[in-house]
């Protein structure tokens, strides 16, 4: 009666992983040095690939870790669906191991909220199932959430069941110069993204056509910018590094930005905006964010400069170490990689 047994591909993967020797899984290498390179001598494997089962009426998809994210999105798009995984190349397993959210996270949801079930190969080489196949489930401990973002240090992802969502009828991007991005964010009910680079603001609106149009009007009314809002094909190009800030810290960033309410003069280059970023108290004393795109209401800042490490408290580090030790007592899974303290630094 337990969940259907792992299929042959997963069993073969488990056999490859085995129970001894340092081992890591290679995906599309789009985020390979996140958390550090695996130690020398680490055996590199590929996870099994393929979409096992897409059930549009259940809004779920069972997919193997080695599947390309693009392939998954294409399959889903054929039935008018999508997932929270950021569409930036790479594999499903890699995207889950890193755990980064899409830049339009407000509209697409967080990656860790989309994972219903994981199957991973443990340090002793057996397939473990955590979570369940249904869209709602609190049976037992939440291993799926623990695995997302764990960089393959607790188990090697082999397969996942993801929640899917209908693609909205309409998705439109708008941009304006000199708009106060927070006014835009507060005026909108459920924007998919509000991005700001120091002078330009981009907004993605999604939903029924009439709602998107109404939201657009609300946006125009709330921000009153001289040049007005123009429609564009996509959001900005994102600088390579991710900083994780509180949404409220972005407001302070804005206040201090050239052209912001705290500065005299017109819009400055985005490169200078970061010099005022020292307000981000929770991120230590950064020398600056450099060129940036900030995700308003979320707190992610895409920057040209790497974020400083944020070491955890001793008690939290001890707890994390106990978790690592329980799941991988011999330290053979992705040796040399660590989710702490460099977890917020991920070159693109």
């Amino acid at each position: 009666m337990t969940a259907p047994a792992p299929d042959g591909a997963l069993v073969r993967f488990a056999r490859e992983v085995g129970a001894t020797g340092p081992v890591a899984v290679e995906g599309g290498r789009t985020r390979w040095d996140t958390g550090g390179d695996p130690a020398a001598g680490t055996r590199l494997l590929r996870a099994p690939a393929g979409i096992v089962e897409h059930r549009p009426e259940e809004m779920t998809v069972r997919v193997r870790a080695g599947t390309a994210v693009d392939e998954l999105h294409d399959e889903l798009a054929a039935t008018g669906q999508r997932t929270a995984l950021p569409r930036r190349g790479g594999t499903v397993g890699g995207a889950l191991a890193v755990g980064e959210n899409d830049v339009c996270v407000l509209g697409r949801g967080r990656v860790r909220d989309a994972v219903l079930q994981v199957r991973y190969v443990s340090a002793d080489g057996v397939v473990v199932t955590g979570g369940g196949p249904t869209v709602k489930n609190v049976t037992g401990y939440d291993l799926p959430r623990l695995l997302v973002g764990s960089l393959g240090t607790l188990g090697l992802l082999a397969e996942a069941i993801l929640r899917t969502n209908p693609v909205p009828a309409v998705s439109r991007w708008f941009r304006a110069e000199g708009a106060v991005p927070f006014k835009a964010f507060d005026a909108l009910f459920r924007p998919s993204a509000v991005l700001w680079n120091g002078c330009t603001t981009w907004v993605e609106l999604e939903g029924h056509a009439a709602d998107v149009e109404a939201e657009r009007r609300a946006l125009v009314a709330a921000t009153a910018v001289a040049g007005g809002w123009s429609e564009c094909d996509a959001g900005p190009v994102l600088p390579p590094y991710r900083w994780s800030l509180r949404p409220s810290e972005l407001r302070r960033l804005h206040e201090a930005a050239p052209g912001g309410p705290g500065a005299a003069g017109g819009a400055g280059g985005p490169g200078e905006a970061g010099e005022a970023g020292g307000h981000g108290a929770s991120i230590g004393e950064p020398s600056g964010l450099g060129e940036l795109v900030a995700s308003i209401g979320v707190g992610t800042v895409f920057s040209s400069r790497p974020a400083p490490p944020r070491p955890p408290s001793p008690a939290l580090a001890a707890l994390a170490a106990r978790v690592k030790h329980e799941f991988d007592p011999g330290g053979r899974l992705n040796p040399g990689r660590s989710v702490d303290p460099a977890g917020s630094v991920s070159p693109r």
Binding site: R145, V148, G149, L154, S244, V298, G299, P312, L319, V323
Partner: peptide
């Protein structure tokens, strides 16, 4: 011991022990 799990920032670093705890 007292620990803070998760954080108010966009993508708190480390294992998602907040998610595991809930």
């Amino acid at each position: 011991e007292v620990v803070r799990l998760g954080g108010l920032d966009a993508e708190p670093p480390g294992y998602d022990l907040r998610g595991a705890f809930i």
